[in-house]
Write a protein that binds this DNA or RNA. Sequence first.
DNA 1: TTCCCATTTGGCTTAATCGCCAAATTATCA
DNA 2: TGATAATTTGGCGATTAAGCCAAATGGGAA
Lengths: 122, 122
Amino acid sequence: MQMIAPQRTAAHRRLIEAQAEIFKALGHPSRLLMVEELTRGERCVCELQALVGSDVSTVSKHLSILKGAGVVRDEKRGANVYYSLTLGCVRSFLECTGRHIDQAAQDLSQDLAGLAALRSGK
Amino acid sequence: MQMIAPQRTAAHRRLIEAQAEIFKALGHPSRLLMVEELTRGERCVCELQALVGSDVSTVSKHLSILKGAGVVRDEKRGANVYYSLTLGCVRSFLECTGRHIDQAAQDLSQDLAGLAALRSGK
DNA sequence: TTCCCATTTGGCTTAATCGCCAAATTATCA
DNA sequence: TGATAATTTGGCGATTAAGCCAAATGGGAA
C-alpha cells in the first residue's frame, strides 16, 4: 500500500483545520490561563471568572470557544456549570513552551551581555 | 522556600502571554501546514509557498508571525531564506491533537448510530 | 554595473475577534 | 410561586487579523 503525501488530501486539510482551531482557541491569554487552571482539576464558571477578572459573559464566551474546539467539556451540576480539560496533552506542551521561552530569554540576555562587553572592552 | 500561586504574579502573566502568542501563531491553517512541513526539515519560502498556495507576500507574513512567536528561525543562504522549526515539541502535540480529533469523530459517529438504533428499534 | 530572482514591506479593503451591557435562561430556595 | 443566583445569548462599537497588489530590498550572475 502506497502512502500518499498527506498535505495533498482533503482529509488532511480538514485535520489541519481542526488542529488549527485548537491552537486558535488556546491562543488567548484569558483562555490559556483558564486552561492552565483546569490542568489542576475541574472548575465552575464563577471560579474561572474570579481568576481572569473579566465580565462573566466574556468568560462564558471564551469557554464556549474552548468547548467548540474540543479542549474542554462542561457538566451542569446544580446551579453551577463545571468545566474540565479533555485535551490532557496541553499540559506537557505548556511545560515545553515554558522551558522554550525561558531559554529564549536567557539567550537574549546572554547576547546583550556579549554586546555590552564588546562595546566597553574592545 | 514558599511557592506563590503562579497566576497572581506579573511574571506568570507575561509567561502566559508569550505562550498564548505561540498558540495564536499556530492557530491558522496555512501556518500550521507550514509548521507541520517543517517538522520534516528546513524549507525555503518558495517551497512553503508552493505548499500553501497563497501569494508569496502572504506566506512571508505568516512566516514572520511564526518567527516572532519563536516557533521557527530563518537563515539566509544564497538567494533563498530557509526556515526551520525551533519549537520541536510541536510535533508530539500535533500527534496528540490528531489522535484526539480522530477519537472525537469516532465518538460522534457512535452516538449517531445509537440514536438511529433508538429511533428505528424501539 | 545591470538584470533577475527570492523575499520582505507598505498599504488598503474585508472579515473576524474582543469585551462590555442588557436581556434571556435555568436552577435553587424560601 | 416568587426571589435570587449562575450562566448563556444577542448585539454593538472598537480593535486586530487576513490576503492581495504594488513597490522596495538584497544577493547572484551576466
